[in-house]
Design a binder for these strands. Structure first.
Length: 817
DNA sequence: TACATAGTAGTTTTT
DNA sequence: CTACTATGTA
């Protein structure tokens, strides 16, 4: 089926390539020699190794322009892939800018996923799907898996569906269909993994749905099994460009390799030192292997950095040098020295937040002869999102405007997902997951029992849930209130569905229209009588969904109604509901923000690709950063990825980079003491200035301040001394330690000898003794009257005698010791 | 069926 | 400590 003719018709550019080729190429002037080489080497495989801040987007966009200007390819013959919509948008804008808006658009510039959707819609039938398939998000995916796991009689406790979801994603990332899963993985998920994966894929087909991983997987499979289809695209895409190549997974790699096989005109841009998505299936190996994968390739290194000061670059280089097997780059800059990277230790997380808050305010005013820095130009980059809370709390109390990037996203909010589930049921009745979501929202008196009946009926008749419900009602299978309510819902869905499609028209024969966006569609209905925006309002209204929130008295209800309004407004920008739903499933970013100047708080992952004059990097403690879990799960590989994360963090800074750590932190309500991160030891001391935290009197920690004036050698010693001191200070002063110490006679608790990562569990089983006064969140104060393993019998003053797990008890601080 | 309570688990997350 | 899930009770 092909639609290359259509592509021509629909997507041909208004650019006259030949006309441009005749002129000189002024766009090449602003490039440095390396960038220029990367642009001008158009044929054959090219690997552009682009360090942080070396102008790779510029090189990439110029290359696209050059391809068109020299007449090598038309805009619709260039395949340019990115990972994020943001990157795609930026590239589109910049190409457009350089060409002076002469190009209509590049239909094949987009994210891997967006491009695969487009392709898969054209060839859906080859994957056993209809071209209007739905794209499930991770939430739907998990719910579906839960159903399958439950049906299999598996104990969700021991084998959580989330785990299975991770395993399946892992397989899909490696482009493994169920039949290709290697024998070594057969034991996965209690030996049921492969079977459930098979069931899951079958179920997805029944639902006419795909998950994110499928978009790639299906296309790779189609390319592998349908030579003709592959050949078409190999011919069509004359040049291929890939951004952030270090983040590609196996499936993406195979997809690219298949497409590039013919002409091998593939240009991959990336930086092995910025590969931070290994945990998501990215294979640094892809970029490391490029030269062997594509023999005869040209490698271009972009090493001139236009972003950061020499101190910052040196600090980043020092840290990343600890990794092995790098392709290796040496970043350099013409910039003048600037400030050293600043390092500061704090007593605890709250103090760290306080200090950073003060520092930001000082910098905003302009301090120590430095020009004032706008809040917009400062960022706090954390390893884990839970670190953000300390900053939010602090900034709220001092009234410092901040913005959290990458928090709960608009389209992930409950009310938005509910509303969209309604739209999905109306637009694609096979979408059982959407139906399940809304069948009892708002409450319709349809509980587990009733839903069970609908499921059974649907399965018996081999139809979707909407039809199942209809049959059930027709056979009087559901009486009472629930039945009547269900009737109303089904009637509603039918009515809305009619409004969506417009009045039925006599079926016109031979009128298959190929719509480039959504694939072939048979014309059977007249134009809708109302707009999709109105329809959306009607659906939300008549279903009682809006009413549900209007009647809700909880404080967040008004906000949710506001969000629903926003959702309806967002609909205006789309031609129909389907278009909107697809947009939402692929575009999960949340760009909307009121303009005011604010400090940005985000994770290191979210910061990739961004830059700020002033950057704060808090929480550099072993266990937090590098993350313990990362190291436990992936060992040295995990540690190296953490190190790359540190590299990414430091290289975000243009002028000023401040790294900090806290000796104590409250984690899940318990105090935890940590050593400063090992990455701190890896910072080259010549480029680091150690600051003294305020309010610390003598001993312990002041050493850090003194170190600043000491000789480098001495500094080094003192810095490692700082580790010891911090650990000691913590251990002896934390409430938990005092408690353990008090009881060490009875319990034989010994002093931890290893300094690294000392965790004190105040609520450890062994720390409770008979007769001890304890506190329980719900029951209040009481005395321990019995101990059985980790269960304690406690006589509460108000609540009486209860058996409680020791975790839920806290000893009282007034215990004498 | 719906709500309250007990229990449990708890990175990073471009699409 | 918090946010979610499973269980028990009205």
């Amino acid at each position: 089926m092909s639609s290359f003719d259509e592509m021509d018709a629909f997507e041909s550019a208004s650019l006259s390539a030949r006309a441009m080729a005749a002129r000189p190429a002024p766009y090449l002037d602003g490039l440095n020699p390396a960038q220029r080489a990367a642009v001008e080497q158009m044929d054959g495989p090219v690997l552009m190794l682009a360090g942080a801040g070396t102008g790779k987007t510029k090189a990439l966009t110029t290359r696209i322009v050059h391809l068109m200007a020299t007449g090598r390819a038309r805009p619709n013959e260039v395949l340019a892939v990115t990972f994020t919509n943001k990157a795609a948008r930026e590239m589109k804008n910049r190409v457009g800018q350089m060409l002076g808006q002469q190009v209509e658009g590049m239909p094949w510039l987009g994210t891997f996923h967006a491009i695969c959707v487009k392709l898969l819609r054209r060839h859906a039938e080859l994957a056993g799907l209809k071209s209007n398939f739905t794209i499930l998000d991770t939430d739907d995916q998990l719910r579906l898996l839960k159903q399958l796991v439950a049906a299999d009689g598996i104990d969700d406790k021991r084998w959580p569906a989330r785990m299975l979801s991770g395993i399946i994603d892992g397989w899909k990332n490696r482009a493994l269909t169920p039949d290709k899963v290697p024998a070594a993985d057969a034991g996965a998920y209690n030996h049921r993994g492969v079977a459930l994966y098979t069931q899951y894929q079958t179920r997805l087909k029944e639902l006419n749905a795909v998950d994110f991983g499928d978009l790639l997987l299906h296309m790779v499979t189609i390319f592998q099994t349908h030579e003709d289809v592959l050949a078409q695209y190999q011919r069509w895409f004359k040049y291929i460009l890939v951004d952030e190549y270090q983040d590609t997974n196996v499936a993406q790699y195979l997809w690219l390799r298949l497409l590039a096989q013919g002409h091998k005109n593939i240009c991959c841009v990336g930086d092995d030192d910025q590969s931070i998505y290994g945990w998501r299936g990215a294979e640094v190996g892809n970029i490391l292997r490029f030269e062997t994968d594509f023999p005869g390739s040209h490698v271009v290194r972009l090493e001139q950095n236009y972003r950061s000061t020499p101190h910052i670059l040196a600090a980043a280089s020092g840290v990343i040098a600890g990794n092995e097997g790098r392709l290796g780059k040496t970043l350099w800059t013409e910039a003048t020295e600037g400030e050293k990277v600043r390092l500061i230790g704090h007593w605890d997380g709250e103090e760290e937040a306080r200090w950073i808050g003060d520092e930001i305010e000082a910098m905003q005013r302009g301090t120590r002869g430095m020009d004032p820095i706008d809040l917009d130009r400062m960022a706090i980059l954390v390893r884990a999102s839970h670190q953000m809370r300390a900053f939010e709390d602090r900034f709220l109390t001092i009234g410092l405007p901040y913005r959290v990037i990458g928090g709960p996203r608009f389209y992930e909010r409950m009310e938005i997902r509910d509303a969209m589930a309604y739209f999905r049921v109306v637009t694609s009745p096979d979408d059982d997951l959407a139906f399940e979501r809304i069948v009892n929202t708002p409450k319709r008196g349809l509980g587990d029992k009733a839903q069970q009946k609908i499921q059974v009926t649907a399965r018996e008749h081999g139809v979707n849930l909407v039809e199942g419900a209809r049959i059930l009602l027709a056979h009087d299978g559901l009486g009472g209130k629930g039945g009547a309510q269900l009737r109303r819902l089904i009637d509603g869905i039918d009515r809305w569905n009619k409004m969506l499609r417009g009045p039925a028209m006599p079926v016109q024969t031979d009128s298959e229209v190929l719509d480039d966006e959504s694939g072939p569609a048979r014309v059977e209905y007249g134009p809708p009588e109302i707009s999709h925006v109105e329809l959306a309002e009607i659906i939300l209204d008549e279903s009682g969904y809006t009413g549900m929130w209007q009647n809700d008295k909880t404080p967040e209800a008004p906000g949710r109604l506001e969000n629903l309004k926003e959702l309806v407004k967002a609909l205006e920008q789309f031609e129909n509901l389907q278009g909107f739903l697809e947009h939402v499933s692929l575009i999960m970013d949340n760009e909307s923000d009121d303009g005011g100047a604010k400090v940005s708080i985000m994770t290191l992952h979210a910061a990739k690709g961004l830059e700020f004059p002033a950057v704060f990097l808090p929480g550099w403690e072993d266990g937090l950063f590098p993350s313990q879990r990362s190291m436990d799960e992936s060992g040295i590989k995990g540690l190296e990825e953490e190190r790359r994360l540190a590299y990414v963090g430091i290289t975000r800074a243009e002028e000023l980079c401040t790294i900090s750590f806290a000796a104590n932190r409250r984690v899940f309500g318990q105090w935890q003491s940590s050593m400063p991160s090992r990455f701190i030891d890896e910072l080259p001391e010549d480029h680091v200035e150690v600051l003294t935290p305020p309010g610390l009197y003598g001993g312990g920690y002041g050493a850090a301040g003194m170190a600043a004036t000491a000789s480098p050698k001495m500094q080094d010693m003192m810095r490692s001394d700082l580790h010891e001191k911090a650990a000691e200070a913590n251990v002896y002063n934390s409430p938990g330690w005092r408690r353990l110490q008090a009881r060490s006679g009875q319990r034989g608790v010994s002093q931890p000898s290893e300094a690294r990562n000392v965790v004190i569990d105040m609520n450890a089983v062994s720390s409770f003794v008979m007769g001890e006064r304890v506190f329980h969140q719900k029951f209040g104060y009481g005395a321990v009257i019995g101990i059985e393993g980790d269960k304690l019998e406690v006589d509460f003053e108000k609540a009486g005698i209860k058996k409680v797990v020791s975790r839920f008890l806290t000893g009282c601080d007034d215990v004498p010791f």
